[in-house]
């Protein structure tokens, strides 16, 4: 009986925590669809705010989508070979490289953004282009791609698999194409989801890196929160949720521990 009480206590607590996380999400979705949030739901439901956001801010949405896809492309090209090398050689040098790569995540985004501005801010064409933001996003998301791929590569016996392929006559590029890439597919996919999600939501750096012509979605959100009525901020948040929902669900699926398969030894 005592154990049952403990169970209910923990369950209640966990339900409370879930409510803490989910209630504001629900509230904000409702607010974005309510005619007047201050009056409440009685004022009726409307898509007016969502449409207003779409007409006023759709550029930020497209820029964020484009930016996150470009960021994904760059992190794939830079990250997969890096992860491969780090998986292949575990020396003091590669550990130091891994450590360095994570620094843009450990160091606050503000500092990185300031550093980029003081170094490259003078290149006017670069400073005002979306590429300037892209650089920041790649710095910030690259470690996630590298780690995600590296985790999968370290879990498989990469060295032996490659030796196996080599013993069958496969040269380096054939091995990379036939063995390495297919076997870290799960890591690449998880890393890609993470990169796109993070790039889509990055604000710490972007706030300093952006210009009036290169506003991303989170920058627009901050604008809306600061200057517009609650309903518009909520509607904008709703649009943001709709965009990242598939990404978040995908991430959750990857984060969940998978059941391990068991194969019985057959008697032969």
């Amino acid at each position: 009986m005592k154990h049952r009480g403990l169970f209910l206590l923990q369950l209640g607590f966990t339900l409370l925590v879930s409510a803490f996380l989910i209630v504001p999400v629900v509230l904000s979705i409702l607010a974005g669809l309510t005619v007047n949030y201050f009056v409440g739901l009685e004022s009726g439901l409307t898509l007016r705010w969502v449409i207003e956001v779409w007409t006023g801010y759709r550029d930020t949405i497209f820029l964020s989508i484009g930016l996150s896809l470009a960021c994904l492309a760059v992190t794939l090209v830079l990250g997969i070979p890096t992860a491969y090398v780090l998986a292949k050689r575990q020396t003091a040098l590669t550990r130091a490289i891994e450590e360095l790569l994570v620094m843009p995540v450990a160091v606050p985004g503000l500092a990185t953004a300031l550093a980029l501005i003081v170094t490259y801010g003078g290149l006017a064409g670069f400073r005002t282009s979306w590429l300037f933001i892209l650089v920041g996003h790649v710095l910030f998301t690259l470690p996630f791609m590298v780690r995600s791929v590296l985790a999968v590569l370290s879990a498989i016996d990469l060295q032996t698999l490659e030796e196996g392929a080599a013993s069958l006559g496969a040269g380096f590029w054939a091995r990379f194409r036939d063995i390495v890439l297919p076997n870290c597919r799960a890591g690449i996919l998880a890393g890609s989801l993470m990169v796109v999600t993070l790039s889509m939501g990055e604000f710490n750096m972007t706030w300093l890196l952006h210009t009036p012509l290169t506003k991303t979605l989170p920058v627009g959100l901050a604008d809306a929160y600061a200057s517009l009525r609650l309903e518009i901020g909520s509607a904008y948040t709703l649009v943001f949720f709709l965009m990242i929902m598939p990404l978040l669900l995908g991430l959750q699926a990857f984060a969940k521990p998978r059941p391990t398969k068991f194969v019985a030894e057959e008697t032969e």
Partner: peptide
């Protein structure tokens, strides 16, 4: 578990807004 991990990658600005909602 799904509810508890849903806000996994909310950006800081959105988190701020969630606090305002509460």
């Amino acid at each position: 578990v799904a509810m508890l991990t849903f806000p996994l990658a909310f950006p800081g600005v959105v988190i701020g807004f969630m606090v305002i909602m509460l």
